[in-house]
Amino acid sequence: MRYLIYFLTGILLISLQTTLVHALAPFIFFYDLMIPFVVFFILFRGGGEGLIASVFVGCAMDTLSGAPFGVYVFSYLWLVLLFKNVKPYLQISDSTLFQVVVVCGVFIELTIFGVVYALSAPSFYFSRSIIWMMFTQLFSAMIFGPFVFVLFQKGFGLMENLIDEKPGPRRFS
C-alpha cells in the first residue's frame, strides 16, 4: 500500500511538472520537483527506499524527456550517493536545512545536465537563456523548498497514520 502511494505520488509530481508548472510559468523554469521527492526519501526514509524512488522516477523522467536516456536516473543516483553519506553529519529535521539540501541537489542536477548537454549538443555556449534557466531553477528551489518540505512531511505523515503500519511520521526527528 505504501509503495503504491509512493508510486502514485511520483506519477502525480511528474504530471504536474510537465503540465501545470509549464502552463503557470512558461518563461520561468521551475526546478525539478523530483529532487525534493528523492531527497526526502534519502533523508527520511533511508538509502534503500531512496534508491528505489530514484530509479523509478529517474526512469519515468528519462522516458518522457528528450534528454539522452539515463541522465535523470544517474543524476538522482548521484544525489542518493552524496546525501546518504552526508546525512550522518547533518541534523536535517527542519525546512531550512531541507531547502539547502534541495538547492544543492538542483545545482548538482544542473551541473550533470550541463555537462551532458555540452557533450551531446553540436555546439554549446553559455547563452543568456541557459544562465536564466539555471538561475530561475535555483531561485525557485530556494523559495519553494520549505513549502514542498512541509507538504511532503504532512502528506507522508498522514499517509503513515492512515495505513497504520507505524503510527506517526517515521524518522522525522
Binding site: 511528474i14 504530471s15 511538472q17 510537465t18 503540465t19 509549464h22 523554469f29 525539478d32 523522467m61 518522457l64 524527456s65 528528450g66 534528454a67 541522465v71 535523470y72 545536465f113 550541463g114 548537454y117 534557466m133 531553477q137
Partner: peptide, 14 residues
C-alpha cells in the same frame, strides 16, 4: 499538446 519536456535543456512535447 498534453505535456512538455521534463527538462528545460531539451525540447520535446507529448
Amino acid at each position: 499538446v498534453v505535456a512538455r519536456d521534463t527538462s528545460p535543456w531539451y525540447h520535446t512535447i507529448v
